[in-house]
């Protein structure tokens, strides 16, 4: 009799990890420099209950802002993906692999702490990271996977 309820709770338990705080990304990503062609260095704030969670949050925020928002002040001020909702709908697996499953690390050339891991509010702490991204390689990968169109028509 309780089986449908149990199965519902099981499905809910499967979904819960995707709702944790490390999945929330903020716009606290600021341009630092582009000293080498095809790369960008940004500072990114990350939030989480543990330090690894907060670092992961900062790194993924840097990537999400570069891909879906653009980084003002840099030559990547236009996002790589013009329509986030459409791209996420059509290429859900790609973005899951890239952001949630850690593929983004293969495009990350540097990840350094800029501040200590310290309390941000009652529930979580934050950290400021310096992240360097190989934008050319990321764009090429997205082109090869058909997530964005190659340059041209």
């Amino acid at each position: 009799m309780n089986h449908p309820l149990l199965s519902f709770m099981f499905a809910l338990a499967l979904l819960l990890p995707s709702c944790n705080s490390s999945k929330i990304s903020t716009g606290e990503v600021n341009y630092i420099s582009s000293s080498e062609k095809g790369t960008i260095m940004v500072s990114a704030a990350g939030y989480g209950k543990s330090k690894p969670d907060a670092i992961n949050n900062a790194e993924t925020s840097a990537f999400k802002n570069l891909i879906f928002r653009g980084i003002p002040g840099s030559q990547y001020q236009l996002p790589i993906v013009p329509n986030e909702a459409e791209a996420r709908k059509q290429h859900n697996t790609y973005f899951e692999n890239l952001l949630a499953n850690g593929k983004y690390k293969s495009f990350m050339m540097l990840s350094e702490e800029l501040s200590a891991f310290s309390p941000a509010n009652k529930n979580q702490k934050n950290i400021l990271m310096k992240v360097k991204i190989n934008v050319d390689a990321l764009r090429r990968d997205m082109e090869q996977q058909g997530v964005v169109r190659k340059f041209g028509l």
């Binding site: 089986h3 449908p4 149990l6 199965s7 099981f10 499905a11 499967l14 709908k89 059509q90 290429h91 859900n92 697996t93 090869q144 996977q145 058909g146 169109r149 190659k150 041209g152 028509l153």
Partner: peptide, 30 residues
């Protein structure tokens, strides 16, 4: 219970994969 859980997971998988779009073919004329 096992059967309903399995069906639930299968449904998630089908819905998820249905949203995927194969890589677009490259246009030759530029």
């Amino acid at each position: 219970f096992r059967l309903s859980t399995l069906l639930g997971l299968l449904l998630f998988t089908i819905v998820g994969s249905a949203q995927e779009v194969s890589p677009t073919t490259t246009r030759k004329i530029q």
